[in-house]
Write a protein that binds this DNA or RNA. Sequence first.
DNA 1: ATCGAACCGTACCGTACGGTACGCCTGCGG
DNA 2: CCGCAGGCGTACCGTACGGTACGGTTCGAT
Lengths: 215, 215
Amino acid sequence: MPLTIKVNEETFTPRQQAVLTAALDLLVENGEGLTMTAVARRASCSKETLYKWFGDRDGLLTATVQWQAAKVRMPVVDRSHLNAKALRLSIEQFARDLLTVITGEVSVTLNRTAVTHAAQEKDSLGIIVLENGPLAIRRRLKPILEAGRDARLLRFTSSEDAYRTFFGLVVRDVQIRLLLGDKSLTQSNIEANIEADVKAATDQFFALYGAKANP
Amino acid sequence: MPLTIKVNEETFTPRQQAVLTAALDLLVENGEGLTMTAVARRASCSKETLYKWFGDRDGLLTATVQWQAAKVRMPVVDRSHLNAKALRLSIEQFARDLLTVITGEVSVTLNRTAVTHAAQEKDSLGIIVLENGPLAIRRRLKPILEAGRDARLLRFTSSEDAYRTFFGLVVRDVQIRLLLGDKSLTQSNIEANIEADVKAATDQFFALYGAKANP
DNA sequence: ATCGAACCGTACCGTACGGTACGCCTGCGG
DNA sequence: CCGCAGGCGTACCGTACGGTACGGTTCGAT
């Protein structure tokens, strides 16, 4: 019987964090390279310690994803004085952050890992990734959207729907293509277009939800 | 050395198709349940035959995904007389088909399998899924969009961009949530909202790319 | 100085699974 | 009737990997 995994306890000792870093590195380098032996060797620790700390392989995986996903923090957008320009900048900033995070190597790896995990009737990693990815962004964007509505700069009925449309406009087919390993989407390729994409998505979002838009 | 896999040859004997069906069933039932022994037992054939026909496990997997993905065919939309109403119906139909396919159990399984595969520096399955999923839809939608533009019903510069925006508006965060195993997205849940979602996405698409829209 | 906890390194075990070999049956051409 | 190709079922092999055990080492507390 494996030990209970401490999923809610986010505090890891520096040594443990070194182990998690090693595990993440292995994941990024080679998605399926995360074997207990490899992690132990990379982190210069014994397998016994891994099992003592994380219970079993799944526990180590969960801790790694959890710890790493929680590190992805969007910068908070200033909400103090909300004129049209500031709102637009905030939305643009969210689009930029969303695209940057989602196209990052770590994010792709984490999402792939979670999808693989979900393919085995285990959804814990998927929940963690969802919670720290899309849902985290949603939580931060929502007050901005509602402030925009209160200031009569935006018009929508459901902030949920508005957010999901925003997500779609920004992400489009980029994420799924990255997850599927589409070679025509290189990192430099994305970086070169990110500003144009951010602007386009923001324009479209305001076209749909701006105060002047048709209901 | 495994035999060369016949990826371009789409013709399988009925017996082979029965094997592929068994493989797909196992995949859908339990993502990681596709072991050679399990397939052989399910299809009532010998492992030796599997290896003779498909070379190795990867070949069987590729053949399964290839064969199944190619079966997903969108109905062709009539393009004969293209007034505003017909165009809108066509777009709506695409949105509906796209959503229906993407949220289907088989599609989710195939995408998960391909993502898992891509996590191991193998992108062949990802390419197959991309080619038969998003890209197939794009190929079919593109002439409709351009016909709409020629008829001055739509306005856009790049049909590529228009398609990708359409994809984003329709799919939003549904696919990634399904891939990650989000429990709050049940099949019945999606089905109940699909018509409303289709209408909303089409409305938004026309708001952005309709002839009356701002450039 | 001594003890014990924590931990490293490594050897070891069990199992699952990819891949192969082989014996047997069936159907078909001669 | 004979022989043989194709295929089924099963036994088997090798390996990779999850998980455990254990001796040796470091280090802090007493």
